[in-house]
Amino acid sequence: MDPDILVRGLTAGSLYALVAVSFNILYRPTNVFNFAQGELVMLGAMLFAAGKSTVGLPWPLALLATLAAVGTLGLAEEFIAVAPILARSKTGTGWVITTLAISLIVSNLVGWIWGPDPILVKPPAPLSLDTFEFAGLRLNSYVIALAALTIALVALIERAYRTLQGKAVLAVAEDREAALLRGINPARLSRWSFFLGGAFAGLTGILAAPILYASTSMGPALLLKGFAAAAVGSIGNNRGALIAGYLIGITEAVGASLLSPGYQEAVVFLVVLTVLLMRPQGLFGLATTRTV
């Protein structure tokens, strides 16, 4: 078997895990799946690429500006497309349509502003995409950093959930009304989650851009697999999302190598389907009983 499979799996898996985590950040306090998340990832990549190449901003400044911009857009989305729906009914599902509408608007706007050409984003020095051999593997420093950063980000987010604010988010996720009675403001947490989820999607786009190029087509490419990682890892579970992201990335790479790359999509979705049929709550979720 080609030893590079592991590298390819880790690269793709890191990106899928990051998208899955960005889903989770939004989902926990709101129970809303943001179907515009893929486009927010793409927007992050495009804004960053434009900031770096067109405006000439240094890496850290372009990074901060992008996170702030995409986070603000996430916040605006919450105001326009989610809060009014949830205000009418906590169990309403109209956000499926409204977040899809936001997705279309973002996609159209980005295409209109930047056009069809992909933009090359170089990794920040001293990282590079130049390959070197290590223990029979063809690696590059950016892929190693990407995998390490993905794990560190998930650890950081998990740690954040242990703070008072984080526990408030978990309380809202558990029981919105009960949390309200305990003095927690779910609406405020919802807004924060959309801001942070948007910023995290922007960060994912920035990290993906050196590998995939910044282009209008990168959102859909990541959205589906990211969603699959969130589902397999149990919705709302970030450690699960991380493991499921790598599981999907490596399955994809192994399937491509052992069967044919043409079957890799089918192999991935077969694995996802099998996991969800056997454990509908995902690999790391707990089955719950509900009295009706």
């Binding site: 080609d2 590079d4 390819r8 690269t11 793709a12 990106l15 993906a208 590998i211 995939l212 087509s217 990168m218 859909p220 490419a221 990541l222 589906l224 697999k225 790479a253 491509a256 190598s257 044919s260 790359p261 043409g262 890799q264 999509e265």
Partner: peptide, 17 residues
């Protein structure tokens, strides 16, 4: 004869084949 999905995030496996 390698056929890749239009949204494939990585073409290295196909090129390697």
């Amino acid at each position: 004869h390698q056929v890749y999905p239009i949204a494939a995030p990585d073409l290295k496996a196909y090129v390697t084949n």
